[in-house]
């Protein structure tokens, strides 16, 4: 049983009177869809911020998460929980809406905490104010006036240094040239979330400046999705002994292929 939780912000105008009906529409749609896929869970709303906890078949959840992360109604999408469990925490809820600031919300958060063996501060992730108390509602235009792309470089670098990120899609040939550095970076990021330290450790770049430049390039093309570093705990598994032989063979194969390609290019 796979358990995944994410936070995101919805592209909904809080000052719009149809806000509540929009929220209900999202919950009802996900309830229907989840029921057909055998997925259960809860969704916590506060203003435009949501936390959704999903549990069910790993493949179905992976597909669903992939779709949500690319849904234009969501922004600042971030995976904050990724683990496995033996049984459903919320077997009767195909998607239960939980209001912010209630005792019931506390109960739900505690339940997720108790059963998910993951080292991140869930409560801080879920410091969500109700719409009537949020800074956003006091100044509804503030957040829209500061779109993600206008984050100063210093803050941006802070984000990539403190986050794990992965690739949503490869850049197109009509967008960028697939240089060796871009190819290696995209290959690494297409297999799962990586932190900046992971990328440095595996030398996925010619130099630090190029690495940061390429990450920025991918982000500007909206090809990256960010996640908490905490999920790296469940993305790393030890390599089994029987795999070492295969990987040694693949490594020697890779070296031979590089030599072969290099020699063909030199003779061309």
């Amino acid at each position: 049983m796979k358990r995944v939780g994410y936070t995101s912000k919805l592209n909904i105008d809080l000052s719009d009177t149809s806000y509540s009906s929009e929220i209900l529409k999202i919950v009802n749609n996900s309830r229907k869809k989840n029921k057909s896929l055998g997925i259960t869970g809860v969704i916590l709303f506060s203003g435009v911020t949501i936390f959704q906890f999903l549990e069910g078949n790993a493949e179905e959840i992976a597909k669903l998460i992939h779709k949500i992360s690319r849904d234009p109604r969501h922004r600042d999408f971030s995976i904050v929980l990724n683990c496995k469990g033996d049984e459903c925490l919320f077997p009767d809820w195909s998607m239960r809406l939980v209001s912010a600031g209630t005792a019931f919300q506390k109960e739900v958060i505690n339940k997720i905490h108790q059963h998910c063996d993951i080292t991140f501060d869930l409560t801080s992730t879920l410091t969500i104010k109700s719409p009537s108390h949020s800074d956003y509602s006091k100044n509804p235009t503030a957040e829209r006036a500061s779109p993600k792309k206008q984050i100063p470089p210093k803050n941006y670098q802070h984000t990539i240094k403190s986050s794990a990120f992965q690739l949503k899609a490869w850049p197109r040939s009509t967008q960028v040239e697939l240089t060796r550095d871009i190819t290696r970076l995209c290959s690494a990021l297409s297999t799962g979330p990586k932190t900046l330290d992971n990328l440095r450790a595996n030398a996925y770049f010619s130099n630090e400046a190029t690495l940061l430049k390429n990450i920025t390039l991918l982000d500007n093309l909206k090809l990256l999705t960010y996640a908490s570093q905490a999920i790296m705990n469940v993305h790393t598994k030890p390599i089994a002994n029987h795999q070492n032989k295969d990987e040694g063979m693949k490594s020697r194969f890779s070296q031979a292929l590089k030599r072969f390609v290099g020699s063909v290019k030199m003779n061309a």
């Binding site: 790993a58 992976a62 992965q166 690494a188 297999t191 799962g192 598994k237 990987e247 890779s254």
Partner: peptide
């Protein structure tokens, strides 16, 4: 892609 996959955990990816 093969080099990268040797360091990844594919079935845990979301």
């Amino acid at each position: 892609l093969n080099s990268a996959s040797q360091e990844a955990t594919p079935d845990e990816s979301v």
